[in-house]
């Protein structure tokens, strides 16, 4: 509790200023009992009674476990992709590039999930940091798309209609892979009080999951295909999340 000793411990000029101001302010109103508490208590009890079932149990998990669930789901989707529908030329694909792309996008996705599920008992992070994360989440797949693949020829992206169909298939694949992560992360949030940047971040995180799985699935290395069908997912799902909220 703030007591006079709290102020006494300060430098003399600071303490004098504070004492004088507090004298002018009068007694602290901390001891007054506000009305309306009984009705409020009844509403709080109703809230707590509604907190039953699987969803409530998941939301009440410690934050590292909630984040862990989303990361595990992402890992499962990536594992499933690598086993069931791996890219055909995986063995020839440059290992360093694969590792860097997966590591950077995976790390961004994890940080985005952490920001989404950040509990309210911690001081609010700066909105600038959130916006930077949002921009990084959109830019990372774009940079990966434009990063030339040396010494490796991927599959032909096709031309005209076949190019468009290929792009559509990849976008659908990435969206289907990102959707469960977006749904889980949204379910695990305890309070939907954040601003537009955080809501968009949920979609961007899902777009990053789509990109992670596409990196393991799609054998095309053409920059235009990667840009339109892979990298755009983060932006599109970010906008979808904003519209959906």
């Amino acid at each position: 509790m703030a007591t006079s000793s709290d102020i006494d411990a300060l430098a003399p000029d600071m303490a004098d200023d504070m004492r004088a101001a507090r004298e002018l302010l009068g007694g602290s109103p901390a001891a007054e009992l506000p009305p309306g508490l009984a009705a409020l208590r009844a509403r709080v009890d109703e809230d707590l009674e509604r907190e039953q079932g699987l969803l409530a149990t998941l939301r009440a998990l410690p934050t590292p476990q909630r984040i862990g669930l989303v990361v595990i789901l992402t890992g499962l989707l990536m594992g499933l992709t690598a086993v069931v529908t791996p890219r055909g030329e995986m063995a020839d694909y440059p290992v360093v590039r694969m590792v860097v792309v997966l590591a950077v996008m995976g790390a961004l996705m994890a940080v985005a999930v952490w920001r989404l599920l950040r509990p309210l008992h911690l001081p609010k992070p700066s909105s600038t940091a959130t916006r930077l994360l949002l921009v990084a989440g959109v830019l990372a797949p774009t940079v990966a798309a434009l990063w030339p693949v040396y010494g490796h020829a991927g599959h032909d992206p096709g031309h005209g209609l076949s190019f468009a169909v290929g792009c559509g298939q990849c976008m659908a694949f990435g969206a289907v892979m990102g959707a469960p992560v977006l749904a889980l992360a949204t379910m695990l949030r305890r309070a939907k009080v954040d601003g537009a940047a955080v809501v968009a971040l949920a979609g961007v995180a899902a777009g990053l999951v789509g990109n992670l799985t596409l990196q393991l699935h799609c054998p095309v290395t053409d920059p235009l295909h990667l840009l339109l069908a892979h990298a755009s997912l983060a932006l599109i799902l970010g906008v979808v999340a904003l519209r959906w909220r």
């Binding site: 409020l40 809230d47 707590l48 907190e51 009440a60 410690p62 509990p119 309070a191």
Partner: peptide, 23 residues
Amino acid sequence: RDDDAQELVQQTFLQMHRARNDF
């Protein structure tokens, strides 16, 4: 206003309940 104040206190206790395992 009083109704907003009560709503936020209600939300605070709900959040306290949901975050109890983080304490």
